[in-house]
């Protein structure tokens, strides 16, 4: 290996791992040390000459979170070494230190455009927020794991620098980004399903290929107490204006459209239609009130039971993509709040 010139790396540490001290020194402002310190030495040793720590940048945990300028100072210090790669931590389960590591990694990636890596324990809250954007090594929860983590980070960083594909065991050491793609597997789905079924029967370990999303229950909104209130109608059954002037997509939509129904008595096939690839639309096309009960609502409005918001919100895709639904759900919610809408009837196909 001696004939290969090692890559120049900058290492970020907090005041504790840099050997300055504990909480008493958490307000230390950013500074740099040429060469490696503490864990950085272990990194250099185990990299067997492939990585050389040009400099170590240090900042106190509290200083980092309390001073918005800290990151700028740190980036300047990092830049001064003209590094080819950057490593932060690992921070294990340390809260502030971990936040600093991911934020600095992101900034370095963006501004210096060089490979970066950090390491965090699975329970660290920054993992879920940054796994999409950064390679984060899966570590233990305390510094006792340093001897395992730092050589792995070095090995992976070296491969990133060389553009070498990570082995599958190395890929498993990094948190998945939480995204998905299609891959070609060795066996077809039927063969894998039968094998999984037999494994499950034997009580051995198996892993579902489609993980269930985390789901939190929502605290119900308080009931409406007023006798007359403002109501809005929403549907995800793909209701559109005749001819689809807004070019709404027909399934699992990322958009919604607004249909002004202020002057209508009911929905009619002359005015609206349906664009939704998932179901047989003919009954709803024949009478769109079968999708959004505007005819009934209008009679209630005339009687003074309710006040109707003049716009129907519509999208396509029964129980559409959670994130999409969430984002336009939030969009619609804020619009409705502004308009004084108090309650919603949502119809789904």
């Amino acid at each position: 290996m001696s004939d290969i010139k090692p890559f120049r790396v900058v290492h970020y540490l907090n005041q504790f791992y840099a050997g300055k001290g504990g909480e008493a020194f958490a307000n230390t402002s950013p500074y740099k040390i040429d060469g490696s310190v503490g864990p950085g030495r272990l990194l250099e040793q185990t990299s067997k000459g492939k990585l050389k720590i040009a400099g170590t940048v240090v900042c106190g945990d509290n200083y980092f979170v309390e001073n918005s300028s800290a990151i700028k100072q740190i980036i300047e210090l990092i830049k001064s070494y003209q590094p080819e790669a950057f490593i932060a931590g690992p921070a294990f389960l340390a809260g502030r230190y971990g936040e600093a590591c991911v934020e600095i990694c992101c900034a370095v990636k963006e501004r210096l455009d060089i490979p970066v890596i950090t390491g965090l324990a699975p329970e660290h809250p920054a993992v879920d927020r940054y796994r999409k954007d950064l390679p984060i090594l899966r570590t233990g929860t305390t510094g006792a794991d340093m001897k395992n983590s730092i050589p792995r980070m070095g090995e992976i960083l070296f491969k990133l620098l060389q553009g070498i594909k990570l082995s599958s065991s190395e890929q498993n050491l990094i948190y998945k980004r939480g995204l998905k793609k299609n891959a070609i597997l060795e066996k077809n789905a039927a063969r894998r399903a039968v094998a999984m079924l037999i494994t499950k029967h034997r009580g051995e370990n198996w892993q579902s290929e489609l993980p269930m999303p985390k789901n939190d229950l929502v605290t119900p909104a308080p009931a409406i107490k007023e006798k007359s209130f403002t109501l809005a109608l929403i549907t995800d059954g793909g209701l559109i204006l005749k001819g689809n002037p807004e070019r709404m997509p027909s399934g699992r939509s990322d958009r919604y459209c607004k249909i002004n129904i202020d002057s209508w008595e009911k929905l009619t096939p002359e005015k609206v239609e349906v664009n939704h690839f998932g179901y047989d639309n003919r009954y709803v096309l024949a009478d769109p009130n079968r999708l959004v009960p505007l005819d009934i609502i209008k009679t209630l409005e005339k009687r003074g039971d309710i006040r109707l918001h003049p716009v129907i919100y519509s999208t396509a895709g029964a129980a559409t993509a959670i994130e999409n639904a969430a984002s336009f759900g939030r969009g619609i919610a804020s619009e409705l709040k502004k308009a004084g809408v108090q309650a919603v009837i949502l119809t789904s196909t």
Binding site: A221, A319, I322, A326, S348
Partner: peptide, 27 residues
């Protein structure tokens, strides 16, 4: 959708056939 509106404090009556889907998505 129901989830976001309900958590914004707007009560939503969700008319649907797939009650289990709605429930699991915060209806």
């Amino acid at each position: 959708m129901a989830r976001e509106l309900e958590s914004a404090g707007i009560p939503v009556a969700h008319i649907c056939t797939m009650i289990n889907v709605s429930k699991s998505m915060g209806g």
